[in-house]
Computed example of a mutant assay.
Amino acid sequence: MKSYIPVLSIAGSDSSGGAGIQADLKTFSALGCYGMTVITATTAQNTMGVKGIHGIPIDHIEAQLDAILSDIPPKAIKIGMLDRPEVVELLASKLKGLEIPIVFDPVMVATSGDRLIQEETIESIKEKLFPIVSLITPNLDETEILCGFKVQSLSDMKKAAAFLQFYIPNSVLIKGGHLETEVIQDLLVMKEGDEVMYENAKIESSNVHGTGCSLSSAIAAELAKGSDLQLAVTKARNYIYQAILLGKSVKTGQGNGPLNHFFNPQNQIIHEVE
């Protein structure tokens, strides 16, 4: 029997198409996977900022998730914006015990600087969701919110990773794109404690809306395709670098534009299953 490679995004919707589930679906598709979604919230936003957030009723989030898991079991899951503690608690109960990679991008602040999460949700995430995910991918702003201290250097990133692994039995990828350095430095700390430092040149571009969403989705897609974590992060970062590079001169909206997700789309992967 032949099958696609299904990957699930549990996240918020971005009405402008640059981030959230829209970016996730574009990323899954560009990397040859079959994308599915559970929408946790809708946002009214564009390249200039977030105008409003509407949480999807909990019972409907649960219905979406049950429908997917009972019919098209994903090979990996990406989790994005969770705006309420109730959503965190639902996912913690539903996803616990699943033996597939779960990549969590703890979306808290939009590229525009708008806050996307309730304060009381943060502790719920740390206590209930972090223990069951395979990898979290916070940027520096999100890392500071999670840790409660400033993260402004590579040594701070290492300190933060150690702090976060108190809650997370698996791996942490801290994205250092906002560091005042000549190159972008991302730090991956594996569940065994091994550290991997990734570096690439900075690209001057205002078209970076949805970068974090797309990176975590790319990692989930590569894990679903069979890569180990270090290779999945390497492939995902290369994809994002090219998507930024080849989209930097394209004008979309008046603010922070999207990446070029389809700069080199892969054919849909079809493989044999038992």
Rank of each mutant, 00 (worst) to 15 (best):
L25G: 01
L179T: 04
K75A: 12
F104E: 01
S227M: 09
K248V: 04
A63I: 07
N238L: 05
S217T: 09
T40V: 11
Y4E: 09
V103L: 05
Q118T: 01
D141R: 12
E204G: 01
I136A: 01
E86K: 13
I132Y: 11
S227A: 14
S124L: 02
M108K: 08
I270L: 15
L129D: 06
H178K: 12
A160M: 05
I125K: 11
I53F: 03
K202I: 08
V172K: 02
L154Q: 13
Q230P: 02
K248N: 08
A67G: 15
K94D: 07
A161S: 15
T211A: 03
M190T: 12
S171K: 04
Q230F: 03
V273G: 03
P73L: 15
F163Q: 08
K158S: 12
V196P: 01
L8M: 09
I240M: 01
C33M: 10
F149V: 10
N238F: 00
V109C: 06
I184D: 04
P258R: 03
E192N: 15
Q165D: 04
E119V: 10
V38K: 10
T40W: 06
N260V: 00
Q118E: 15
L245V: 01
Q268F: 11
Y239T: 02
G32R: 05
E62I: 04
R84L: 09
E182V: 05
Q242A: 08
C213Y: 03
L91N: 07
I132N: 11
H60I: 14
I21P: 05
I168P: 07
E274D: 15
R115Y: 09
I269E: 14
G12Q: 04
I117L: 10
A30C: 07
K126A: 03
A41V: 14
L164G: 00
S29D: 12
T252R: 13
G17R: 06
I269D: 06
P265K: 06
D105E: 11
P265F: 08
E180D: 14
A30R: 02
T37C: 10
